[in-house]
Amino acid sequence: MQHSTLELRGLTRRFGAKVAVDGVTLSVPPGQMLGILGRSGAGKSTLLRMINRLIEPSAGTIRYGGADVTALTGKALRDWRSGCAMIFQQFNLIPRLDVLTNVLMGRLNHRPVLSSLFGMFSAEERAMALRALERFDLLETALRRAGQISGGQQQRVAICRALLQEPALLLADEPIASLDPHNARVVMDALRLINREDGLTVLCNLHHIDTARSYCDRIVAMQDGRIVFDGSAGELTSDRVREIYGVSEDEFHGAAMPAGDLMLA
């Protein structure tokens, strides 16, 4: 997919009477690493899922390189989804299938359905998958079941699957919320690596301010479905956090994180 600017205009999603995302307008230039910050329930997930149309917007438009993403259907929609890869909080791998096959799933929109149904992937595709796994130090897990490896490894497998889609964008929905601090760093490093080396635009939902500050070029903060801050990492100072959310940074984290969640200090 061509690298272009992602344009959201007045993007809104209502669930019954509740407005999850409220008139978000945002422009993301190609190659940017954007952190979307907010407490749980701020609308970050809904926003990200609307971008690859896992959730349909109630109002507003998504444009990418002149194309109206909100109007896509059928094959064009599947092409769009394959062009903006998704990373999930719970990894969403197929635990019963081996790691290699999970990574090969990233090719599904690029190849004939019938041969995919019989698992007939070419040697070149297998080599692509292995090369991606090797890049993230996972080659030796290639033939193990995805459910048997650690959470941090699973999330990196999910990143490999995303890379095989050869996307222009990467949407990461709380990619480290289920991981311990060490694995969280490894996964965030991996996301930054593909942003820097492969030039992918990365949109990453986070709920910890420090993670966003240290990894993202630009930070957008959300509250109650609206954008309440949009600026560089340096501009989001402790004072700004207090101004926006009315609480200190520590209090923000205390409220944002469910009990038992690990801090990424």
Binding site: A127, M128, R131
Partner: peptide, 20 residues
């Protein structure tokens, strides 16, 4: 993201089971 035949052969030599 095409892979050169030599690299495919090298990977196949390292992990033959991954190629079927």
């Amino acid at each position: 993201m095409r892979v050169a035949p030599a690299e495919i052969a090298a990977l196949r030599a390292r992990l033959p089971a991954a190629f079927g």
